[in-house]
Amino acid sequence: MSGANSNISDRRKRNNLMLGGVLLGFVALVFLITVAKMMNGAGDVANSKRVPVTEQSE
């Protein structure tokens, strides 16, 4: 019985590790996407819609 318990315990540990790995990978991917978007100028596009006050008055 202890052998079976140990087997199940090992499998659960492996499953938890894999799930943890997937979640960590997801976080890393979101971070990389954010960096890539910023480097591509996504921020610039958003900022370009802000018209300076001086231009508005003109």
């Binding site: 079976a4 318990n5 199940i8 894999m18």
Partner: peptide, 15 residues
């Protein structure tokens, strides 16, 4: 017992 807490039926695996 501790052993009775362990479900020995088909258990879901990550795979």
């Amino acid at each position: 017992t501790d052993a009775s807490l362990v479900d020995t039926g088909p258990e879901t695996d990550f795979t």
